[in-house]
């Protein structure tokens, strides 16, 4: 989890699920995992993951191998690429939605691959933080 007072500028990658309640600016690549942007989360980054749930604010493109959910408290300004997209009533969305599986495949190939974590059981090592 990235807590409410944490600010990260750079690239976040790894092999575990991630809950963002703080601020992230840069790129988030967790291709085989879930990324949740919590209600207090503010992300200015492209997000690549298996499933992505947005409850907070995101400015950037979102690419998921399986599913994207933009909940009623979510606010997304960017393009979404995923085979399944769910928008809840009240969600704010500005951009395009690509639910074409061929397009998702291309986007996934283009996305950076997560680097295997040496010690995934230790939370900090699951995040590869490269300062901008």
């Amino acid at each position: 989890m990235i807590g409410p007072s944490i600010v990260i500028k750079g690239e976040v990658s790894g092999e575990e699920d991630l809950l963002i309640q703080g601020k992230v600016e840069g790129k988030i690549s967790l291709n085989g995992n879930q990324v949740t942007v919590g209600e207090s989360g503010e992300v200015r980054a492209d997000i690549f993951a298996k499933t992505i749930q947005i409850n907070g604010k995101v400015i950037g493109d979102i690419t998921a191998n399986e599913k994207v959910i933009i909940s009623k408290s979510g606010n997304v300004h960017g393009n979404v690429v995923a085979p399944r997209v769910l928008l809840e009533d009240g969600a704010m969305f500005k951009g395009s939605i690509d639910m074409d599986p061929a397009g998702v495949g291309k986007a996934t190939v283009a996305a950076p691959q997560a680097v295997p974590s040496a010690a995934p059981q230790i939370k900090p090592s699951g995040l590869d933080l490269k300062s901008a």
Partner: peptide, 30 residues
Amino acid sequence: QAVTVFHVGSALPETVDFFSSYRCKLHFVD
């Protein structure tokens, strides 16, 4: 089948859900 759609207006849940049965690219511009 692949369909590309231009929707002038807000993205609504039911619209996204309806088009999810297509291989769809939805462009929303409010």
